[in-house]
Design a protein around this nucleic acid. Structure first.
Length: 426
DNA sequence: TCTGGGGTCCTAGGACCC
DNA sequence: TCTGGGGTCCTAGGACCC
């Protein structure tokens, strides 16, 4: 493959969660906005006013309560229903702008724009304006010969008022790369950055020019090589237009308060397992392995700690909630120890196959399986029509005192008629 | 009192086979 | 009799991402 054969753009929403909240609350203009993680644990998104007021991402919320009052900040619990639906709107607008688009994350899309030799800056500006006008969300656009370069370009775009940066048309790209810390490169985390630092490599230009042999030996083999080659302009990470089905499905949550009783812990495990099963069936998958893990709060060093997981493998692939719940509950009982304050539990389904491509089995009772499938299909249909959780399994319990805290939840403006925005005429 | 959730890919190393 | 070494599969764990 030749260098510079391709061209990519990365569109990244600015302060996405905070922007979603702001989009429905024009009355908050000028005020700091903070969005909290699940369980109102820490701060995960800030608008510009909040950054200017001195708030920082990933700080614990309880340490900010006073400052938030002082600065008259608007504070929101995470509202993933809202963000998911806003994300779908943004993605759908972006998809009009290139033949090949990958929805990379909730707030980022890669566009492949090979052979686009027109005025890329104008094209990007128009995209930006349309997203802003139709959704209220601000985005930045970075352009480069590879995805890794587009990511870097996006970092520059974020700092510019026009919100667009084209690395591929820079007269002096070396200088641009010199200004990017190695730690800020897509694919270089803390560990790899440390190894680079020890070798005297501190910016993207130096990493680009490092020897393949050293990179391969020290930066995770071909993963690191791909990053370096992409910095050189050789595209190694293609666009993935269709998200492949999940190979693992995880559901885990921290509790709103410590859980000490076995029955409560098992209820939480059951409800997480049931949720994982729904996700599994939505991709027409069947799983053979279920893992349960339980954890105490590792931030409380004064408490005794317990972190364990256990795995069970079925004889046959299954997506039948009662079967998986029974296994998860057995694992939970096996793991549970008295005398600990549990903070978190999780259930993971793995060894997943597509229903249509499942290996044949000699022992499977086809009739029994068909009956189970009908039962699950009925439950899924009812829950889709009447709302998630309309039909539930009794083992998940009915009162959930351990459920996460979401004390500042905004309405689900875009997905619930009861919570849609009201406009008053004066 | 209070510190997120959900993934992916890769490598290393052991077991096993021929 | 040959007791080496290459291939493959699996799993655990590391590292990274948003």
């Amino acid at each position: 493959m030749q260098a510079n054969d391709h061209l990519f753009a990365l569109v990244d929403c600015n302060n996405f969660y905070a922007s979603c909240e702001a989009a429905f609350r024009p009355d908050l203009a000028g005020r700091p906005i903070l969005v909290l993680s699940n369980n109102d644990g820490n701060v995960v998104s800030l608008n510009q006013a909040a950054k200017d007021a001195g708030f920082e991402k990933f700080k614990a919320w309880f340490e900010y309560r006073e400052l938030a009052k002082l600065k008259n900040a608007a504070v929101f619990s995470s509202n993933y229903t809202l963000y998911g639906s806003m994300s779908a709107r943004v993605h759908s607008i972006i998809s009009e702008y290139a033949p090949s688009v990958e929805d990379y994350s909730i707030d980022e899309s890669f566009l492949q724009i090979d052979g686009f030799h027109g005025d890329r800056i104008s094209w990007a500006r128009e995209l930006r304006e349309r997203v802003k006008k139709w959704t209220g969300i601000g985005v930045s656009v970075g352009i480069g010969y590879t995805k890794t370069q587009a990511k870097i370009a996006n970092r520059f775009a974020k700092k510019l008022p026009e919100g667009v940066f084209d690395l591929a048309s820079q007269p002096n790209p070396d200088e641009c790369l010199s200004n990017v810390d190695v730690q800020d490169i897509w694919g270089i985390g803390e560990r790899k950055a440390d190894k680079c630092g020890a070798r005297g490599i501190s910016n993207a230009r130096q990493l680009r020019d490092a020897s393949d042999a050293w990179i391969k030996a020290n930066l995770g083999g071909i993963v690191g090589l791909r990053t370096a080659w992409e910095l050189r302009g050789v595209s190694c990470i293609p666009i993935e237009e269709v998200r492949p089905d999940k190979q693992e499905i995880m559901n885990s949550r921290s509790f709103g308060r410590p859980v000490e009783r076995e029955e409560e812990l098992l209820q939480a495990i059951s409800s997480y397992a049931a949720r994982a099963c729904e996700k599994l069936r939505r991709q027409n998958g069947r799983a053979r392995t279920v893992m349960v893990r339980i954890d105490t709060n590792s931030f409380r060093s004064q408490d005794p700690q317990y972190h364990e997981s256990a795995t069970f493998t079925f004889e046959e692939y299954t997506s039948h909630t009662p079967d998986i719940l029974a296994a998860a509950e057995r694992l939970g009982r096996h793991l549970f120890r008295n005398g600990y304050r549990y903070k978190k539990a999780g259930v993971m389904l793995s060894d997943i196959v597509d229903e249509a491509r499942r290996p044949p089995s000699l022992f499977l009772d086809r009739e029994e399986e068909a009956r189970k499938d009908r039962m699950m299909a009925t439950i899924d249909t009812i829950n889709r029509k009447l709302g998630a959780g309309t039909l539930r399994f009794a083992s998940a319990g009915f009162r959930h005192p351990w459920e996460m805290r979401r004390e500042n939840l905004s309405p689900r403006y875009t997905t619930r008629w009861e919570e849609v925005l009201r406009v008053k005429a004066c």
